[in-house]
Amino acid sequence: MDSPLRIIGFYWTLPVPWRGFTRLPGGIDEAAAASRSIRYQRERVWRWAKDEGGQVVAEEAFLETRADRGTSAILPEVERLLAKAEAMGATLAVVNFAESFHWRPHASLWGRLQAAPRVMALDPVPVLIDGQIFDPVTHFRAWGEMAAAHTALKPKAKAEMAARIRRMKDTGASYAEIAKALNAEGVTTPGGKPWRADNLRKLLAAL
């Protein structure tokens, strides 16, 4: 009897700094809980593995370095997983969003995988997650619209934040004290980062 197909699942996503999503937890379960995109890709790979009578033997998740595109930063991880697949006699399974929907193209990733053996590119078809159909096209389109709305609001948000900082300065608070107060409230910079004295100064100087 032939051994079952051995599968390594590889899932990636983009950071969303304006929502404070700038890192993935270390464990794959935690990464899938933190990112719907990672959760979707994981479900897609596991369902394909089940259909093929295969076994998922390893999984890795990767968070890109840019919020707006895939980069070559992913390549060291890809090379490591390709070597692992070769050593284990496994297939590296990756969802190719751009192939079917021209969404989230990743030239660095697929430029490398297209020339590699032991790779399965999966179409991003909708799957059932927690009793509901998850359609990646609808999901990413909604995120794109929210990102566009956030970008449009940035000048207004910066002006409002600058006005608040100036009011706090007028009470005698230092930049360090203002940064500490804003961070304690969970208020981030327009780019989703913690406040520091230097970026407070830069915000005021830019307006």
Rank of each mutant, 00 (worst) to 15 (best):
P4F: 02
L5C: 09
R6M: 08
R6Q: 08
I7G: 00
G9L: 00
W12M: 15
T13P: 07
V16Q: 10
R23I: 10
R23C: 11
G27N: 11
D29H: 06
A32P: 00
A33D: 14
S35D: 01
S37N: 13
I38R: 11
R39T: 09
R42W: 08
R44K: 12
W48T: 12
A49F: 12
E52T: 04
G53A: 00
Q55H: 10
Q55M: 13
A61I: 13
T65C: 11
A67K: 10
A73S: 11
A73F: 06
E77T: 15
L81K: 04
L81H: 07
A83C: 02
A85V: 05
G89P: 00
G89I: 02
G89R: 03
A90Q: 10
V95Y: 05
F97R: 11
F101C: 10
H102R: 14
R104C: 06
L109K: 02
R112T: 14
L113F: 05
L113W: 01
L113H: 09
Q114D: 14
A116I: 04
P117T: 13
P117I: 12
V127I: 04
I129E: 09
G131D: 03
I133W: 12
F134I: 08
P136M: 04
H139F: 11
W143S: 13
E145N: 13
M146I: 01
M146R: 13
T151D: 13
P155E: 02
K156Y: 11
E160Y: 02
M161P: 00
R167H: 13
M168T: 10
D170R: 12
S174D: 01
A176C: 02
A179C: 01
K180S: 13
L182K: 06
N183Q: 04
G191N: 13
G192Q: 01
K193N: 09
K193V: 07
P194T: 08
N199G: 01
L200F: 05
R201A: 10
K202L: 00
L203V: 02
L203S: 03
A206G: 03
